[in-house]
Every structure is written in C-alpha cells, then in structure tokens.
Amino acid sequence: MPVINMPALRPTGLPEALVMPLPGRGDQIDMRAHLLGTRIDMRALAGFGDPELVELGGSCAFVFRYGAVVLVGATSEEEARILAQVAPHAVDPPTSPEIETARVELRDDGDETVSADGRIRLREATPERLLLAATVLARSVVLARDEMRIEDAFDRIEPLLVDMREHGRAHLPIRQIMRQIGSVLSAQHRVVGRARIGEKPDLLWEHPELDRLYGRLEAEYELGDRTRTIERKLEMLGDSAEWLLDLVQDKRSLRLELSVVALIAFEVAIGLYEIAARWPH
C-alpha cells in the first residue's frame, strides 16, 4: 500500500500572540515580561497583528492572551505606553507587579542557545525566534505568579490542619473551604488551559527547526520541572481542601441529625405531657 505524506496540521483558533513592531535597538536587546492579569482580551487591541504577518526589525511588543506582555528592545517610554494601552483589557490584575527580564544577544555564528550568564543567543531577530523566546519568558512569569499563589494557599490551609492536630477540631467556615477549592481549580485552569505550559508552542508546528532552541530555553527557565512541581502541589491542595470540605459536611450532617433527634424528643415529651394532662387524677 502506498504511503501518503500528510502535512502537519496547525491548531486553529486565535493567534498564539499578537505583536507590535518597534524601532530597532542593535545587537543587544533587553526583554521584559510583565504579568498584567489572568487573561487579556486581545480582540480589543489596536495596532497589534499576527507575528507571522508583521515585519519585525528586532524590537517589538508581544501580547499573550493568558495575561502576559513581553517587551523586546523597548525604551522606558515605549514600555509605559504599551502597558497603559494593554492594561485596561486585562482581567484580574495582580496585587503586586510580576516581572521577569532577559538579555537577547544577536550572533550570526555559533549555536542558538542560552549562555552561562543567562543571555539568549539568537542568529537573527526573526519573528519566529523572538516569539519563541518571548513565549518562554511569558510562561515563566505566569508560573512565578502561580507559584506565589499556591504558597499563599498552603499558608491559609496550614492553620486549619494545625488546629486539627492539636485540638482535634477546627473552625471551618464553608465559604473559606470553597474559596480554597476555587483557588486550586483556578490555578489548574491557568497552567493547563490558558497558558498550556506543559505543551510545546504552536509555532513549532510550522518551524520544527526551532525545536532545539525551545528545548534549551525551556530547560534554562525550568518550565517542565516547575510545572510538575505546581501540579503536585495543586494535587495536595485539592486533596486537603476536599478532606476539609468532607469534614465540614460531616459536622453539618451530625448537627442536622442531632436537631432531628431533639425535635423528635420534644414531640414525644409534648405527647406524654398531653397524655398525662388527660389522665384522671
């Protein structure tokens, strides 16, 4: 039977990121990733286009729909202008800024890799290479936010567990437990759903020659290890939250049963009193 080679199909949907070109800045380019929220409505952005359709000269601004903006070679004035333009379209902005930086070095010789001092070495500032580096930095800043939120969730649950260990009981408001479960599910949705940090970028479907560069960038920022650590902690938080919720529900069931028993006893007492009142003296 003859074998038919089918072309690789790229996932459909919105672009992985939007980009705005900026004036070129030379061979040393600073890259800064800002976390603006859990999601950005990119449909409302003006002046941004698909990275595959925009001519870039080495400096640009990438916007990712999972809440990150990466400035490549931007001046402080350009950075402030773009952040002010994008921020109104961000959902659930963080209470404190989350920023990661990197230095991109353009070299037409040698391997494309990450140097010992953390510089990202690229042969040229093509849209694909810049998008790949920006994607890794954007995913890293998203992971940093979720790592901090997960630690906060552990800090909130720990006093409840300590109370259970020391006193055999815990004051467990149902709303507090539901908030814990909601935080866990929200973090899982961000990591697995929106940012898809455990998956390779869609860009590599059409540019498989950049797969080695992505592997080196992913290893430098430890995306895989950090994602697996987050998943394990989310699983622990989920188990703890579900256990606490079961405990609260058991306490409510016990209270309900005691209330029913007390009501039955009260009705029996009323019945006995009425019988005693009718009994001839």
Rank of each mutant, 00 (worst) to 15 (best):
R175I: 08
P201R: 08
D155R: 03
L210K: 08
E151D: 12
G238Q: 04
G215A: 13
D155Y: 03
W205M: 15
L247Y: 03
R252Q: 14
R190T: 08
K251W: 15
R252A: 13
I181V: 13
L254N: 14
D146M: 01
T227A: 04
L256S: 06
L223Y: 04
I157A: 05
R194Q: 06
E158R: 11
W243M: 05
L244G: 07
P173C: 10
G198H: 08
E151K: 01
H171K: 13
S183E: 12
R216G: 05
L258K: 12
S240T: 05
W205F: 12
M236I: 04
I181S: 12
L223H: 03
G168F: 04
S240Q: 08
E147Y: 00
D246I: 06
I181Y: 02
E206Q: 09
R196S: 08
D250G: 06
V184T: 15
R232Q: 02
M236Q: 11
G215T: 15
L213Y: 08
R255H: 02
V261D: 14
K233E: 05
R216H: 10
W243R: 06
H167F: 11
T229E: 06
L213R: 10
V191L: 10
L210Q: 15
V261G: 01
D225Q: 05
E151S: 02
L258E: 13
Q188N: 11
L213P: 05
R156A: 02
L263V: 14
L256E: 09
S259M: 13
A153P: 00
W243P: 01
Q176P: 15
D225L: 01
D152A: 04
T227R: 04
V260W: 03
E166D: 13
P173F: 13
I230S: 00
E257T: 04
L237K: 11
A241F: 04
W205Q: 14
R165A: 14
A170W: 10
A170F: 12
K251P: 03
A241N: 06
E242C: 15
Q188A: 07
M164A: 07
A195H: 07
L245N: 10
V184G: 07
H189D: 10
R149Q: 11
W243V: 07
I197Y: 09
A187D: 05
E199C: 07
Q176Y: 14
D146Y: 02
D246F: 07
Q176R: 14
L172S: 15
D246Y: 06
R255S: 11
A241H: 08
E199D: 13
G198C: 07
A187N: 09
L256D: 07
L254D: 14
L256W: 04
Q249C: 13
Q188K: 11
M164C: 09
P201C: 13
R255A: 09
V191Y: 01
